[in-house]
Write a protein that binds this DNA or RNA. Sequence first.
DNA 1: CGCGCGGATCGAATCGATTCGACCCCGTGG
DNA 2: CCACGGGGTCGAATCGATTCGATCCGCGCG
Lengths: 355, 355
Amino acid sequence: MTRPTLADVAAEAGVSVSTASLAFSGAGPIASATRDRVLAAAARLSYAGPNPLGQQLRSGRSGIVGVVVGDRLRRSFRDPVSTQMLDGLAQALSEQNLGLLLVPSEAGEVPPLVQHTAMDAAVVVLANGPDDDVVLALTRRGIPVVSIEGEIGDDPRRPGAATTNVGIDDRGGTALLVRELLGLGHRRFGVVALPYGHDRRLGAPDVDGEVSARYAHTRRRLAGIADAGVVPEVVVETPASLVEHGRSAGHQILSRPDPPTAVVALSDLLASGVVLAARELGLRVPEDVSVAGFDGIDLPWLAPDVLTTVHQPLADKGRLAGEAAVELAAGRPVDEVVLPVDLQPGTTTGPPPRR
Amino acid sequence: MTRPTLADVAAEAGVSVSTASLAFSGAGPIASATRDRVLAAAARLSYAGPNPLGQQLRSGRSGIVGVVVGDRLRRSFRDPVSTQMLDGLAQALSEQNLGLLLVPSEAGEVPPLVQHTAMDAAVVVLANGPDDDVVLALTRRGIPVVSIEGEIGDDPRRPGAATTNVGIDDRGGTALLVRELLGLGHRRFGVVALPYGHDRRLGAPDVDGEVSARYAHTRRRLAGIADAGVVPEVVVETPASLVEHGRSAGHQILSRPDPPTAVVALSDLLASGVVLAARELGLRVPEDVSVAGFDGIDLPWLAPDVLTTVHQPLADKGRLAGEAAVELAAGRPVDEVVLPVDLQPGTTTGPPPRR
DNA sequence: CGCGCGGATCGAATCGATTCGACCCCGTGG
DNA sequence: CCACGGGGTCGAATCGATTCGATCCGCGCG
């Protein structure tokens, strides 16, 4: 009644367990007649191949890479930025025959899966920095960690941990974008920011995010704006990169008396929400207000507008993270990766209105 | 240099391995002083807890549920229907402390992960029926399978396999929708169909999908339309449930001479593409043409239109599939589940234009 | 004072495979 | 004719934990 094991197959074929093993793994010399006998015996017992659990224990490797997606899974899935990246990641891992274990993680919690599941390496999306508890738990277990969109530094609490970062040039990206807007003549800016990563004191505008945001990519993108020499008139932090939050932030900014002439949103979804808000307020884009985003995702439904944005190579980012995980799992160190971004002009930006 | 094992900890603490095991598992009697000594020793060696690989072999369970998403991962991720379902699934599994292994699968291929990775159960999205090779491979390995949006029947090639189906009332759903449109006065219908699941002879309109579609949910939804007594004037099969495909199908249908007065799309994304196409052709919705969809997802960017659709409980579907997987993994049989759907009227349907 | 009971600890078997070294046998070359 | 070599097979150790049954010890009760 119980599933057959290699030993059963060996007995059925009249060979030793070690020989039976060779018949399946192909490592080592074996007469083809013997192999056939073993395989026939296996078929007779409907033995579907070596039990992975046994192989894993023996080899010490599980063939699994954990992918920890910060914040609710629901959100990660709704955001094309995450999904495209995950797609590249999945691709890279499946090419190496590695499994992708999806680990959802509420902010501030260390999921039990992180503590107790077997994995050869982990990719953490949106690590909050060196002190992230999830990263700490993983490295404590000796699991190499790749961070995406975050940054893992050295931490005395985990000496010799194998870690690396994969990211994009966030800072250069927003600087590029803002310089473009400056070139068009804009001087007064509004900013719709991604979450800062502080514990939920949301909505409070805070120009200080540039230095204080806990989420590295938010901080870096804000820093890029400063690099271009711009101090925004208003900064609105949003709870997540979703169209509806962009819309409400857009309303907030554009219904001010004498609103800014350009709104920079730190993601495309937020930016498209701002465009919707502008439309609802009867403002023409870009004649009355310019709107720009970040990410370079496809937004077919925004037609006829095409968002001016900074394009980042999302699938590549995921793929590189996957490859980095593979390398670290094999015990080879991996250098940090910072991917370039480029300006992708659309129809949502133009010269400011003449007053 | 090598990671410490339970034996090392036991030695360090001066107890036997079995006692050390008890200190961690808590199963069986142990003096609290002893437990503390063991834990202290573990801390000294920075032993992070029992190696999952050993536990897994011993228990024969991996704590992992494979989720096979048919077609490219990219597509599954772009579709809110999949992602909301996955979200419910992830939730259910993580409540049971089970890992979710994401297995992308090209149509017609059996991914190596399916063959060789350890899992306690699998959920297959869009199984193509009893003969699906992926399902066959899994059941051959003795892995219980839950099918979502497909249907696994009995197959002589896998006697005694533990399987079940979780789905929705597709057929009743489209029947409901079409009866509503009939009630409004529509008599001439166009249909934008989901893929039939045949091998890529796409684009060829085919009213026969009702009986021939390999993908069960496409077949059932088409059958519901027939149940309502309607024979569409035109049926367009699309390659995937994406806005752009809905748009081109919409153009195809609405630019016919004397087009149908109502277009039923088998998914909301397709339907919203049809709405966009109507807008582009200068047709008013619903005055000139009524459009209806299926799924009941959120489409904020379609504003001011709100799609008339059939709502299905996506997260529940995922959650139930997860729970079914848990049950099957535990060796308990599970009955098929068919979730109810309901009509969700919007602003995109109305009486047909008077001629 | 001795026996019995129960809580704590320990030894050894077990899960299912891989792999190293030993061994056997047969063919070839000296 | 013998020695050597190599292809093929086998036995046993190993990976890291859990668990069953046995042992040991101390305490309470008769």
